[in-house]
């Protein structure tokens, strides 16, 4: 299982890199920006919290870098991400834990829908490639793929929120869903439809493009022609023979795609004031709340890592060649 070992190694190394970036960044910048932040919050934080922050960001500390790094790892492994400066006295961990499920739900569901939708359309376009459908779909997907997520989100919000009034214009979700029961669930769904639609529509374009190209390439393979020579029905050739193979590269390309979608989703959350990590990150950036920023970055990275790892596992399950020999 050389393939799997390599993936695990990448997973661990990337996790380490994400954590280390958080450690290095503030120390790398000329005139450590965290110092400015700390100065601003002087007096508003307890001395203990301040002391912890000095270690985390390497401000006014006489410890060696190595000792700081070790202490930093100690904090990370025990889940001690420090206090949020914006939401003081709430801890960063609390804030992230509160926001994370929202993002997971929104991004998870819309990515899944976008993947299925985009892949399906890509298959259909490739199967009829050269047709008018294919000719129209391609530039449309390119355009969708080239739209800034947040801008599209703004237009959706304006049109369906303000002008037509079909959906709530954002905010207030935390209160609404606390109503609980069906009303709460309804509030969650009605708040999520627009952001989810935005992410789905803009992300699907990318999947259409990659799937279409993979599939067109696969349709030229001998085994597709041979499948037709066997007299298999079109549906079987299209899905079981062509699409089943064409979808494989999508799993190795998943890393880039999911990173891109998550980025877009963060911006979408901001536009809709959706109470997820993206919105929290925005607040943190506005308030120069570095501890919160770092924890969010870490969390998003880990989530993306896990998503990638799952995609790798799916790939292993779907491609017998990788299972047997292992590829790098």
């Amino acid at each position: 299982m050389r393939y799997l070992t390599r993936r695990v190694l990448v997973l661990l190394l990337t996790g380490w890199a994400a954590l280390t970036i958080n450690f290095v960044l503030p120390r790398l910048m000329p005139g450590n920006p965290a110092e400015v932040m700390l100065a601003r919050f002087q007096g508003r934080l307890s001395p203990r919290a301040l002391a912890a922050l000095t270690v985390e960001f390497g401000v006014h500390t006489h410890q060696s870098l190595l000792a700081q790094y070790v202490a930093y790892w100690g904090h990370m492994l025990t889940g001690n991400f420090g206090l949020s400066l914006t939401y003081y006295p709430a801890s960063v961990a609390q804030m992230v834990a509160q926001a994370f499920p929202w993002t997971l739900g929104l991004v998870g569901i819309s990515t899944l829908i976008a993947f299925i939708l985009g892949t399906g359309i890509g298959i259909a376009a490739a199967w009829r490639h050269g047709s008018r459908l294919d000719g129209v779909l391609l530039p449309v997907s390119l355009l969708l793929n080239s739209m800034p997520y947040f801008w599209f989100a703004l237009l959706m919000l304006y049109l369906f929120g303000f002008v037509l009034g079909w959906f709530p214009v954002g905010g207030g979700l935390n209160l609404a869903h606390q109503a609980g029961g069906w009303a709460g669930l309804g509030a969650i769904i009605s708040h999520a439809i627009l952001p989810a639609a935005t992410i789905t529509i803009t992300a699907a374009g990318g999947w259409v493009l990659t799937m279409r190209n993979n599939m067109v390439a696969i349709l030229g393979e001998d085994f597709v022609k041979f499948a037709r020579a066997k007299g298999l029905p079109d549906r079987v050739v299209e899905f079981r023979y062509a699409a089943r193979n064409a979808i494989l590269p999508n799993f190795t390309g998943f890393a880039m795609a999911i990173g891109f979608v998550v980025g877009g989703a963060l911006l979408t959350e901001i536009v809709f004031s959706y109470p997820g990590l993206g919105y929290l990150l925005y607040e943190a950036v506005l308030n120069l709340d570095y501890p919160l920023m770092q924890a969010i970055f870490l969390f998003i990275s880990l989530a993306v890592l896990v998503a990638n790892f799952l995609a790798d596992l799916a790939y292993i399950l779907l491609d017998p060649r990788v299972r047997a020999v292992g590829r790098s």
Binding site: G264, I300, V304, N308
Partner: peptide, 13 residues
């Protein structure tokens, strides 16, 4: 490593 690291959050921080 860079492939898996989500771009926009990294850019933001």
């Amino acid at each position: 490593i860079f492939l898996v690291m989500p771009g926009l959050p990294l850019m933001i921080i």
